[in-house]
Design a binder for these strands. Structure first.
Lengths: 335, 335
DNA sequence: CTGAAAGCGCTAACAT
DNA sequence: ATGTTAGCGCTTTCAG
């Protein structure tokens, strides 16, 4: 009976106890099949009874594989990212890896800084709603493994929720209620999504013979809603599409304050179907998508662990379906 | 001009280029002051121009310091943790460290599993709203560095928001509105907070001559609200204190469905002042606390980086102030 | 199939 | 103040 060592046992301890070389222990533990079944069993058993735990750092140093991935989000307190975070966390864990979460505070520089800092400690990056330019992202790709969420860049794997078809659903819904024009309360200037959404709105409205106006940009947060609401009112809008639910909720509040009745006087639509969209007043009509699935997919794409059940998309740019959830914030256009 | 090496430069490259030993480079970079100012400058400059980045893994292996901490939360999608997560993330970054986020899904076993898995890759753990028993936590403390949020265990550093004084504020508010009895819609059985809150409610109601009833436990989520609301109604309650805002919001919705008018027929109070508490219908009266500060403090306590401006508390058990935010969900007791 | 030995990039005594 | 020299715990050729 040896004295109970305070430190964790290493492969040396296991090797000695099992009467084999450390290399055999290493193989038995990480590469079974390349070692005799009997020896492997012995090693595993000894490791087990010694309470051996592999040291992830020591493992990562020679191999270069850290079994860790980083998820960068532009704002951890934005409920929009919940689904993404949870999905990514689950899938990372399922792959036996660890997730590092970093908040980039809507700043492309902070994004780059985080990547710089973490490179070397992680196997790859998932960037949600990146604020970097296509070029910056392109340069990063040949230096690091990375996948994108809610952003598409040629040659970079990504998972997004279908904004084009979704926008069509929104516009058709408004048109069916008799609205002849829509106003878009835009998100940040650097936001790829904001540009895409506006683009889609223009395309669909044109096709259906509606008119579209863009206002903003506004901060994609509840506090951005007041200015957006006022601007929309100033335009005499009958229907406004907010860049996201946060902004939409902020607008709802402002309308209430100004005694503008939604949806009697004006209809409001958001994007994302975040936590709260169903219990704000009135409940928000919004475009829902499976963001948790996007989080999972992004990890799969990064780790190369996608199961075969899904057909591989061209260029690994996955587009997830979206659907409009109609609630109380949209109604017939005022006559 | 050397060929542009594809791999990152190491201290060996820097040492060679600067004409010093690797140990000097190491010191110059991590322990300036223990090296001649001139040599240090040279080393730093060479490192800079070579684009040298220290490899965190290699640094962690011999030193044992990973400069990484893990934050365990019971549910990443619960807005209650936003502030905590953001605060912890900020403070971790400020200390030059990295934060790992793990979701424990309300399970004490998953908590333990995460700790087991991450031990060795992190310098310590911050556990928010731990579901583990005092004993389990106690055992962990002599194996790992750890601090607690929203939980107190003797001998373990922690940061909590004052629930006792907060509960007093809640009860006095209700009493001032003429309520003579309160119902507590309890959280999970394993929740330390749920026990504490009920304890505080009993103490304060007794002192003020009100009566108190406990219902539940209910899942601390919006979906738990229906059952809680029905139970409260069954008790003929005039005022109900929900375990947290999620549950309170769920109750609000159920009351609306059942055409029970809040606050005319029944008053509702929550805890935490989460995202959404101000725009649900009616807006929720709730106990607010600085959870981002709790997150920051927990990291400080863990890393030993607390600035001296705050007086050290006994046993490092910090209690943050709380205050009641009165909104539309509370009103005079029905007569 | 297994063992010996050389690192991975950095730190930390111990010398000088 | 700086250089020398062992490691940290694990992986991975390369032999056998």
């Amino acid at each position: 009976m040896e004295p109970t060592d305070r430190k964790r046992p290493t492969i040396y301890d296991v090797a000695r106890e099992a009467g084999v070389a450390t290399s055999t222990v290493s193989r038995a533990l990480t590469n079974p099949g390349r070692v005799n079944a009997r020896t492997r069993d012995r090693v595993v058993e000894v490791a087990q009874q010694l309470g051996y735990r592999t040291n992830p750092l020591a493992q990562a140093l020679p191999s270069g594989r850290t079994r860790t991935v980083a998820l960068l989000v532009s704002d951890v307190t934005n409920p929009h990212f919940f689904g993404i975070i949870r999905g990514a966390e689950q899938q990372t864990r399922a792959a036996g890896c660890t997730l590092i979460l970093a908040d980039t505070e809507e700043s492309p520089d902070l994004e780059a800084a985080h990547i710089e800092r973490l490179s070397g400690s992680v196997d790859g990056f998932v960037i949600a709603a990146s604020r970097m330019s296509d070029q910056q992202i392109g340069e990063l790709t040949d230096r690091h493994r990375l996948t994108l969420i809610s952003r598409q860049v040629t040659g970079v794997p990504s998972a997004i929720v279908d904004h084009e078809d979704g926008t069509r659903q929104i516009i058709e819904h408004l048109a069916s209620l008799g609205h002849r024009s829509v106003v878009y309360a835009a998100g940040p200037r650097r936001s790829w999504l904001a540009a895409k959404r506006w683009h889609a709105i223009r395309a669909v409205t044109r096709k259906l013979g509606l008119s579209a106006t863009r206002l903003g940009p506004f901060p994609p947060a509840v506090r951005g809603g007041a200015a957006a609401a006022d601007a929309a009112l100033g335009q005499g809008a009958t229907a406004v599409i907010a860049h996201n639910d946060l902004l939409a909720i902020g607008m709802l509040r402002r309308f209430t304050d100004r005694e503008v009745h939604v949806p009697r006087d004006i209809s409001v639509v958001g994007y994302d179907d975040i936590f709260g969209a169903d219990f704000c007043s009135p409940p928000l009509t919004t475009l829902a998508g499976q963001f948790d699935e996007a989080g999972r997919l992004a990890i799969d794409l990064l780790l190369g662990t996608r199961d075969g059940t899904r057909p591989p998309q061209a260029d690994n740019q996955v587009v997830l379906p979206s659907h409009l959830v109609v609630r109380g914030s949209t109604g017939r256009a005022p006559s």
